[in-house]
Amino acid sequence: NKASVVANQLIPINTALTLIMMKAEVVTPMGIPAEEIPKLVGMQVNRAVPLGTTLMPDMVKNYE
Score class of each variant (00 low, 15 high):
16 A>C: 03
44 Q>P: 10
20 I>W: 09
20 I>S: 13
49 V>G: 01
22 M>I: 10
51 L>I: 09
19 L>I: 09
26 V>I: 05
11 I>T: 01
62 N>G: 10
16 A>Q: 12
33 P>K: 08
46 N>Q: 12
17 L>Y: 00
35 E>T: 10
28 T>I: 08
36 E>S: 06
52 G>H: 12
63 Y>H: 13
16 A>T: 06
61 K>M: 14
17 L>H: 00
34 A>Q: 05
61 K>T: 07
28 T>F: 15
7 A>S: 06
28 T>M: 08
1 N>M: 13
48 A>L: 12
61 K>D: 07
40 L>Q: 01
23 K>H: 12
16 A>R: 07
23 K>R: 15
14 N>I: 06
41 V>L: 11
46 N>M: 11
45 V>R: 00
32 I>H: 01
57 P>I: 04
6 V>S: 04
17 L>D: 00
22 M>Y: 01
59 M>F: 11
42 G>C: 02
27 V>E: 05
14 N>K: 07
7 A>T: 12
59 M>W: 12
17 L>N: 00
26 V>H: 13
52 G>Q: 08
51 L>D: 12
15 T>R: 05
18 T>V: 04
53 T>H: 15
40 L>F: 02
32 I>V: 15
36 E>G: 15
31 G>L: 01
22 M>W: 02
53 T>I: 12
20 I>T: 14
14 N>W: 06
64 E>L: 05
42 G>S: 10
14 N>V: 08
10 L>C: 02
45 V>C: 02
39 K>W: 08
62 N>D: 14
20 I>A: 06
63 Y>T: 06
50 P>H: 10
47 R>F: 14
25 E>T: 09
20 I>C: 03
35 E>Y: 15
47 R>S: 08
24 A>N: 05
32 I>S: 00
39 K>Y: 11
63 Y>G: 06
1 N>G: 08
44 Q>R: 09
59 M>L: 09
40 L>G: 00
11 I>G: 00
2 K>Q: 05
37 I>A: 09
63 Y>D: 06
12 P>Y: 11
48 A>F: 10
13 I>S: 05
17 L>W: 01
44 Q>T: 13
57 P>N: 08
42 G>D: 09
3 A>V: 06
33 P>I: 11
9 Q>V: 09
18 T>N: 13
42 G>A: 10
58 D>N: 13
3 A>Y: 13
21 M>K: 12
28 T>R: 06
59 M>K: 02
30 M>P: 11
63 Y>V: 12
61 K>V: 14
46 N>K: 10
26 V>Q: 15
59 M>I: 12
45 V>Y: 00
24 A>W: 05
10 L>D: 10
22 M>T: 03
31 G>P: 01
18 T>C: 03
35 E>D: 11
37 I>T: 08
28 T>L: 06
21 M>D: 06
40 L>I: 05
4 S>G: 09
12 P>V: 08
33 P>Q: 04
4 S>F: 04
32 I>C: 02
38 P>L: 09
48 A>V: 15
24 A>V: 08
44 Q>K: 04
13 I>A: 12
35 E>V: 14
44 Q>Y: 11
13 I>E: 08
17 L>M: 09
50 P>T: 04
35 E>G: 15
9 Q>F: 11
20 I>K: 04
33 P>H: 04
57 P>T: 10
57 P>E: 12
44 Q>I: 07
41 V>D: 13
46 N>H: 14
49 V>L: 15
49 V>N: 01
62 N>L: 11
55 L>V: 12
53 T>Y: 05
19 L>D: 08
37 I>L: 12
12 P>E: 15
14 N>R: 14
27 V>W: 03
37 I>N: 02
13 I>C: 03
56 M>G: 07
58 D>T: 05
34 A>S: 11
6 V>Y: 04
47 R>L: 05
26 V>C: 03
30 M>N: 05
48 A>R: 11
12 P>D: 11
60 V>W: 03
34 A>K: 05
41 V>N: 05
56 M>D: 07
31 G>C: 02
17 L>G: 00
23 K>N: 14
24 A>C: 03
21 M>W: 07
6 V>I: 12
57 P>F: 13
32 I>Y: 03
30 M>A: 12
11 I>V: 15
37 I>G: 04
44 Q>C: 02
50 P>R: 12
7 A>H: 01
43 M>S: 08
8 N>A: 11
18 T>I: 04
53 T>Q: 11
51 L>A: 04
62 N>E: 10
55 L>A: 01
27 V>K: 05
15 T>G: 15
33 P>N: 09
56 M>S: 10
